[in-house]
Structures are given as structure tokens and as C-alpha cells.
């Protein structure tokens, strides 16, 4: 066999072996065996000196080509084997991806606060700002200045908790109207979300509950403006198709006053147990600020008019989530609370 043939067959031999290799170690030893300093290719090339320069050049080029071919193949094989080794390593540490997660699970929202925040945000987006007042309130702010005189039957509308310090637990968020008007000049556009208290406890009444009060005072606020604002609000909460009904009513601090009903969210107005067959649900009270209230806070009723409204959060939350007993909202049994994950 001449030198050329020897080199070519060496090349073929190496290619065959490399193709079959299955480990990086083996690949390395093949590299040494064929391409190393004492490797087979070098050994063959040692006889190169005996040849003529032309032949030497030709053989040299051939040897280089073969060498490169083997090197490329080894590189390629090396990549393959490393890939495979990694794959095996990963496979060895495979996990059951369906195991329960091991991170903190986000907590649940309370349906009352969630509803309160949702409603507040609607009014904030309309330009109202949030005002507040204390829950331990002066009788004066809770009643007298709201045109509910001491010995008036209107006081019976709200069963009051009285405190040992002579104050009371506010029965509604309306005293925030008074506090706001005493400290700010019109125009005023505020809402006042908060806890209120009445001496009442049964499946639909809790001695502590939440309200949102709204107040808009400016030079030309009208009852139809009130209707407009409440329409936007009710449609945002209950959907575009909700029926809305204004019924004249009486609140000492507004005149004219109205109660607002929406079409029953359960039966859609057909009449059911929730709406007691009427097709309507009482949802909030509202009206035009009574001039006596304006006078109590030194705002000129000939110059300004205003509207106010108040609504109970629990009732809306209960309708929204079909909760049938108000007491569940305050027990904080996690079997209840955890049902309200994923609400805002």
C-alpha cells in the first residue's frame, strides 16, 4: 500500500470509529490515537522525508485534509455527546411538575372591602375625592346638624349605640358630610366610605356594617344631576341593562329625597325570593341637601345646591356574590373567605 492509500484508509478507519463513539472519554482517546503527537497520522507522516518534494507536497495536503476531516468530525461528535450527557443529567433530576407549588399563595380579598373599593374607584374616576371621619362621633354631627333634631321621630329610623363618653357610634357616614362642609368651601365633591353602626342583628342586619356616602355641592347641582351620576354608578356595578327606579322618600338631611331601586339582579325583574316578588331591590338612599344642613355648616342655600347619597356595602356585596347571611361576612371563617380569591 502506498502512502496515499495508507493515509486515506487511516482516515476512513478513524471516521468509522468516531461515528460509533458513545462517550466523551472514548472520543478523546480516539483523538489522541489518530491525531496526537504520537498518533497514527503523525507516525505515517514520519516516512514523508523519503519522498520527492512534489509527492511530499501532495501527501502533505492530503494528510492535512484528512486531519481536518477527523477534527471536524470529532468536534461535531463532541457537541452531540455533550448534549446527550446534559440531557441525561437533566433527566436524572426530572421532577413531577404537577407537585403543589412552593411559593406564597396570594391571599383572599374580603368581599366587603372589595366591593367598597370597587365602588369608591368608580366615584374617584368621576372626580370625587375620599373624605373621612371618626367612627366615634358627636351626636351633633351624626344627628343635630343633619337636621335630625333630638326629639324627632326621624331618630327612630336609626337605632343608635351610645357610648360611655357621651358620644355615639356613627349610625351612617353622613356626619362626614358635615365635617367636610365645615372644613372646605364649595365646590365639594367627596365620597366617604366607612364603618357604621346600628343596634340591630339578624340575617340581613349587622350591628357593624359599611356605607359609602357621596356629596356634591356647587352653584347649580340638581336632582337630575344626581340621577345622572347614580345611573353611571349603578350601570358600572350592575351592568348596562340594569333597571333603575327613583322612589320619593324621606331623609331628614335631604329634600327632596328618594330611594333608588334596581331591577332584581337574581331574577332580572320577574319576581323571586330575593326581591320578595317585587322585581326590584332597594339599593340606596339619596336626595338634595336640605337647606337646614347647609345653614348648619354656614353654606348659603340660596347660592349653593347639592346632592348626597348613601348606600350599604354589605347589601351590594351580598347581591353580587349571592351571600344569604350577613353574619358570614364578619365571622371570617376561612372556608368562607377563601372563596373570594381572585376578586379585586
Amino acid at each position: 500500500m502506498n502512502l496515499k492509500d495508507q493515509i486515506e484508509s487511516l482516515g476512513k478507519e478513524a471516521v468509522e470509529l468516531i461515528k460509533k463513539v458513545e462517550s466523551l472519554d472514548k472520543l478523546n482517546s480516539l483523538r489522541v490515537e489518530y491525531l496526537g503527537k504520537k498518533g497514527k497520522l503523525k507516525t505515517i507522516l514520519k516516512t514523508l522525508g523519503k519522498l520527492s518534494p512534489e509527492e511530499r507536497k501532495e501527501i502533505g495536503q492530503l494528510a492535512n485534509r484528512i486531519k481536518e476531516q477527523i477534527e471536524d468530525l470529532i468536534k461535531e461528535k463532541e457537541v452531540q455527546l455533550k448534549e446527550k450527557a446534559l440531557e441525561e443529567e437533566l433527566k436524572k433530576h426530572k421532577i413531577d411538575i404537577t407537585l403543589p407549588s412552593a411559593w406564597i399563595e396570594a391571599g383572599s380579598s374580603h368581599p366587603i372591602i372589595s366591593t367598597l373599593v370597587e365602588i369608591s374607584q368608580i366615584f374617584i374616576s368621576m372626580g370625587f375625592s375620599v373624605a373621612e371621619g371618626p367612627e366615634v362621633e358627636k351626636e351633633e354631627y351624626n344627628f343635630d346638624m343633619l337636621n335630625i333634631p333630638k326629639d324627632h321621630p326621624a331618630r327612630d329610623m336609626q337605632d343608635t349605640f351610645f357610648l360611655n363618653n357621651g358620644d355615639l357610634l356613627r349610625t351612617h357616614t353622613s356626619p362626614v358630610q358635615i365635617r367636610t362642609m365645615l372644613t372646605r368651601k364649595p365646590p365639594i365633591a367627596v365620597i366617604a366610605p366607612g364603618r357604621v353602626y346600628r343596634k340591630d342583628a339578624d340575617p340581613t342586619h349587622s350591628p357593624m356594617f359599611h356605607q359609602i356616602e357621596g356629596l356634591l355641592v356647587d352653584t347649580d347641582v340638581t336632582f337630575t344631576d344626581l340621577k345622572g351620576i347614580l345611573k353611571i354608578f349603578l350601570e358600572s356595578v350592575f351592568g348596562k341593562n340594569v333597571g333603575i327606579r327613583f322612589r320619593p322618600s324621606y331623609f331628614p338631611f335631604t329634600e327632596p329625597s328618594a330611594e333608588v331601586d334596581i331591577s332584581c339582579t337574581v331574577c332580572g325583574g320577574e319576581g323571586c325570593r330575593v326581591c320578595k316578588g317585587t322585581g326590584w331591590l332597594e339599593i340606596l338612599g339619596c336626595g338634595m341637601v336640605d337647606p337646614n344642613v347647609f345653614e348648619a355648616v354656614s353654606i348659603d342655600p340660596e347660592k349653593y345646591t347639592g346632592f348626597a347619597f348613601g348606600l350599604g356595602i354589605e347589601r351590594i356585596a351580598m347581591l353580587k356574590y349571592r351571600i344569604n347571611d350577613i353574619r358570614l361576612l364578619f365571622e371570617n371563617d376561612m372556608r368562607f373567605n377563601h372563596q373570594f380569591k381572585g376578586i379585586r
Binding site: G127, S129, I188, D220, K227, E255
Partner: peptide
């Protein structure tokens, strides 16, 4: 006003939309 309003019908009156005074968001 209330008497004539309630008998005329508060419910049928058409809604209007007030201009709400721009208050600083800071207040919330």
C-alpha cells in the same frame, strides 16, 4: 319643591350630568 316634585314624578325626569369640580387627586 318636594311636594310638586314627587307628584310630578322624580322617576321620569331625564338624567343630566353635572360638572364635577376638579379636585386634586392628592385628597384621596
Amino acid at each position: 319643591v318636594e311636594e310638586v316634585g314627587r307628584l310630578e314624578g322624580l322617576n321620569k325626569a331625564k338624567e343630566t350630568f353635572p360638572k364635577i369640580p376638579v379636585e386634586s387627586f392628592r385628597k384621596s
